[in-house]
Design a binder for these strands. Structure first.
Lengths: 304, 304
DNA sequence: CCTAATACCTGACCAATGTCAGCTAAATTA
DNA sequence: TAATTTAGCTGACATTGGTCAGGTATTAGG
């Protein structure tokens, strides 16, 4: 049992059993598992049928049948999507919401039991789970706009500040107020705030803040340790640059610290050049990048 | 998504999908998944039916049916266990072995693909998987006798030596020869070697070595980091003490180092007392425990 | 020796799941 | 406008996995 593959298989076996047990907690409500899972996947605002099918990997026929059953039970109702009237949106009725709550609590209790067993190693267990899930989802990380005051964005920024405080012992919590005092400037149309998502876990962020005169500043680039080594920082930088172009900026700035070597290397590699100081302590390196407006070229036909 | 429970659920969702994909790699050989899993769980030396049932959590009837099917396909044959003729042992026929190999390779390839995606974080991924599997199996850790030259025992001892070298920088690899020079003395009837198993991962060990005159020495107590915090070290110590009593020893000794504080605390707590040095460098603390022969008491009837 | 428990087999049954061809309605494209 | 594609529904069917009552052979306990 020294072989990694054998260990993955052990993980496999154990987790299949255990996760199965977590799932079967949904039983005992007189409904088969598949039905319960579908019901529990309907979001408060309603979910469209295609999304359910995608997330559960079900055949149209099967899902249709399940939905019909739930409808007959009076737990959901189906409405056509006004935007595309072929599509249908599933919504919970009040009775459906009550059932949903019950399933939610059942799952919660089971999950709690798993953590209880971990004893002192809860944090380690959570980290391990995040790592595995993130590795398995790594080609599905999505970068989306976020409000600077959104909990996910704040969680990222908070983690970033914690990282800074670990790296630079003379940084103190009061240097990092949350919520952000510059939230308004980091929100469109003035600036931007992007968050990278792995499923529903935020694993990275970056913000853009106007300095005036067509110049903007890139701030708070952060990638969760569980998501490192996948080029996510680069993706975030590219995204924020594209966004800056779209918002009409012509030049970018950033300040950083030479102790953060991998970040500096990334910037240089991406065309940033060192410039004279434009901020003070604690930064010790300042960089800039000239943006080129998007070129409207028409690719030859065979490029599609 | 800051909530641990939500993160467990994410893990859940992702792993179910991914592990499902790993499993379904067993399909495509014209056999349902359950059947393939059973076939692949049969060990080269043969596996008894009860073990299959236990590991897959199947009903007797279902497993029986599956085995009948495999037998009709000519992949296995069933023999009665000579030790207990109610039990039956499943063995692969040559054709069965060929099929087994194919499944093994399919699984191997899929597993390899998972690790490939992990890139530089393979070791972290393996550690995370071990941790999760071990937490989930924590009340199922079994302590069994092992031969000191068995690969599992050597793996544990090797990990123990690595731990020592990390803790004490002046220790060098040549101080720890493998295989063990004292293997014979650590093997019954002279001594003992115990290994703790979590499923098929060895997660701890301890050895017993005779010193003569009814005295034995406890050596190489080690618990894998993924299995710490569950009282496994104590279980190993208790097991080795029971074993020492059974083998007729009346006194135990051990040498250790005060830098290994938790271990020393454990020994003290378990009735070990400090004694005068009986070995030299690198030890700096020596302890002993007087064993009380097993008491043959008959519990009152209602104790069952 | 008799009784109880254990290990496994057998056949019957059922619910859940998956698959498929064919259908309607709406949207998209040419 | 007609043809094609997309989203979803329906009914029929097969397979799978799971359960159960009842059976045999063997072992364990008193």
């Amino acid at each position: 049992m020294l072989d990694p593959i054998a260990r993955l298989r052990r993980f496999n076996r154990v987790v299949t059993r255990e996760i199965g047990a977590l799932d079967t907690s949904y039983l005992g409500r007189g409904r088969p598992l598949g039905v319960a899972r579908v019901l529990h996947l309907v979001k408060p605002g309603g979910t469209d049928v295609a999304e359910l099918r995608l997330r559960l990997g079900l055949d149209t026929g099967l899902l249709s049948r399940i939905l019909r059953g739930l409808k007959n039970e009076g737990l959901i109702h189906l409405a056509t999507d006004p935007a595309d009237r072929r599509r249908r949106i599933v919504r919970l009725t009040p009775e459906g919401q009550a059932e949903w709550q019950i399933y939610d609590q059942l799952g919660y209790a089971k999950a709690q039991a798993v953590f209880d067993r971990a004893g002192t190693r809860q944090q380690a267990l959570i980290d391990a789970m995040d790592l595995i899930a993130t590795v398995m989802l790594q080609d599905q990380v999505e970068i989306r706009d976020a409000d600077p005051d959104d909990p996910a964005a704040l969680a990222c920024v908070g983690a970033y500040y914690r990282l800074l405080m670990e790296t630079f012992p003379d940084f103190t919590p009061d240097m990092f107020p949350l919520p952000l005092p510059d939230a308004t400037r980091c929100r469109p149309p003035l600036g931007a705030c992007l968050v990278a998502w792995s499923d529903d876990l935020p694993v990275g962020c970056v913000s853009l803040r106007p300095l005036g005169n067509g110049v903007a500043e890139v701030k708070r680039l952060w990638v969760d340790p569980v998501a490192r080594g996948q080029g996510l920082a680069r993706r975030l930088m590219r995204s924020i640059e594209t966004r800056a172009v779209a918002q009409g900026f012509t030049d970018l700035r950033l300040d950083s610290h030479t102790d953060l070597a991998p970040a500096i290397a990334l910037y240089r590699n991406d065309g940033w050049v060192e410039i004279a100081p434009y901020t003070g302590y604690p930064a010790n390196i300042w960089m800039a990048k000239r943006l080129r407006p998007r070129q409207h070229f028409s690719p030859p036909q065979h490029f599609r």
